[in-house]
């Protein structure tokens, strides 16, 4: 069920799972669009390995994009007022990741929700984590 107002939100609830596209095609397109397309870091596994990386990476801010998208899938009327992401370790392109979010605080009268956010790789290792403050309609 899509969340339409603050009264639809329950403390401790996990947002529905969201499977982001971490393919090299997607990371390359993202990197090109933000002006990071030169070099192979986000678009070429072989060139990334020559730079000493384990492979081409998912840009850190793309993980922020995944988390914002997940919030909008949960509630299309949600306004992300603040999002803070900590890049703990790299995420590799072409490797699936799992993202999750849980409601950790609700200020009902203000229409504000706080979420804890996590991005894990296929080995269940946390690569990115953070928080978001989201505003929802009061009614």
């Amino acid at each position: 069920m899509s969340v339409k107002t603050i009264s639809d939100v329950e403390f401790g609830v996990e947002l529905p799972p969201f499977q982001p596209d971490t393919s090299l095609r997607a990371t390359a397109a993202f990197a090109e669009a933000v002006g990071w397309g030169r070099g192979g870091r986000f678009n070429d596994h072989e060139r990334a390995r020559k730079e000493g990386l384990p492979g081409a990476l998912v840009p850190g801010i793309m993980a922020m994009g995944f988390l914002t998208s997940m919030i909008h899938h949960w509630s299309p009327v949600a306004k992300v007022e603040h999002i803070d992401t900590v890049f703990r370790a790299p995420l590799l392109a072409d490797q699936p990741c799992t993202i999750s979010a849980v409601v950790t605080d609700i200020a009902t009268e203000e229409g504000l929700v706080q979420l804890d956010l996590t991005v894990k790789n296929s080995a269940d290792e946390t690569r990115v984590f953070g928080t978001a403050n989201v505003r929802l309609p009061l009614s």
Partner: peptide, 17 residues
């Protein structure tokens, strides 16, 4: 167009993005 590409590659589906 680049802004829209970033949104789409992030999995965004809301048309305002």
């Amino acid at each position: 167009d680049k802004v829209a590409t970033v949104a789409k590659m992030s999995g965004e589906t809301l048309p305002e993005f």
